[in-house]
Design a protein around this nucleic acid. Structure first.
Lengths: 198, 198
DNA sequence: CGAGCACTTGATCTATGTCAACGGTAGTGG
DNA sequence: CCACTACCGTTGACATAGATCAAGTGCTCG
């Protein structure tokens, strides 16, 4: 019934001009120019760059807006890199989409996300890691975690500590590694949701 | 030259309907209804309330917007209380003031502030306290700090640790307590800006 | 005058950091 | 194919920054 059947987007999940980014890859560097993005899938890490030193600044997960400051200043404030496989769409998406209500929602979301990230840097080490797992897991109880080092940067712990904690979560059956082709994955887990109640 | 000289606001610094809040006082509680605010002076602490437990979530300083989620959901997500004497104005302030550009600015500011707060929870204890002092101090090198306990909540340290750090900053002349009527103030300091270079 | 709060300081403990060694996997180049 | 390097992750032994516990000061308020 479409007037232009041939022009309908090919894949409903991946609208025209969306971007896919592999884990570990950079989306943009602080100071450079580019678009603003909405993150539709995955996890992105934002870093401040100060005197050449790069340090963890914030986390973006599905729904969050990235690099909106570029629309104001023409340059990114932070560097962004994918912690898991990501999908992004240029933002603002529609013509009138970026005004009023929608921007306000984004502002409220940004403030909520900020609180989430702050919470990941306080309390017992194991609880921080669990907090991150809760934040990144889906409803079905699956998580793809970032590397131990990235988790360490986010939670302000050391990667050795993260390694010990994750191993102990495995031993206590809170996390179960997912095997792919019989290969022991170190970052994909199914989560025992009951023991994760927050 | 004004057409309506009698209607010009009385005090340029305190526009009509602005609110003053003393240190330690609550601005609003999570879950309740109210206005959104722009913080024009002072420091406000935001807390998440989870199962009766209240824990530090974020910090707002001059320029930041507070409680904007109330415009969307009709209820505050966090609780807000003044850490120092504050001045607030209802937001959005003007008729067209809350659209487009201005909202985008607020979003970018919120993301920057989030990174600031995250940075206050990583690194050496003394550096976190210095980071907070840098964030709260004015250009003239004056700071009014929150209580030791509030600083501790912000930096994820203990108040005894904060007490020791501040005392040691005093001893090394980085902070100088300001005496009021000869009374030794414990929260007002002048800062040796040179040793604070960040 | 007593109660409550904010702050200081000392003594001791411990969660986490640090250092070190090692294993697995992927990529690269001969 | 192997050798080599570069990551990433695991685990053990030990060190320490900061937490915890405890006691005491001074101020304010009723």
């Amino acid at each position: 019934m479409s007037l232009f059947p041939g022009r309908i987007r090919r894949k409903p999940e991946a609208p025209r001009s969306s971007l896919r980014l592999e884990a570990g890859h950079k989306l943009y560097h602080a100071g450079s120019e580019g678009l603003a993005w909405r993150l539709s899938q995955g996890v992105v890490r934002l870093d401040t760059v100060l005197q050449g030193e790069t340090s963890f600044a914030s986390l973006a997960i599905a729904g969050d807006i990235l690099g909106c400051e570029t629309l104001l200043f023409g340059a990114y404030t932070f560097s962004a890199s994918a912690l898991t496989q990501c999908e992004l769409t240029p933002w603002p998406e529609g013509e009138g989409a970026a005004s009023g209500e929608s921007l306000l929602e984004s502002l409220a979301l940004a403030q909520r996300r900020a609180a989430d990230v702050v919470a990941l840097r306080g309390g017992q080490a194991a609880d921080r890691v669990l907090g991150l797992i809760r934040l990144l897991g889906d409803e079905a109880g699956r998580v793809v975690l970032p590397t131990r080092q990235d988790i360490a940067d986010i939670t302000n712990l050391r990667f050795e500590t993260i390694s010990r904690i994750i191993k102990s979560l495995e031993r206590s059956r809170i996390l179960a590694p997912i095997r792919i082709d019989g290969v022991h994955a170190t970052r994909s887990f199914s989560v025992n949701l009951a023991s994760l109640a927050g």
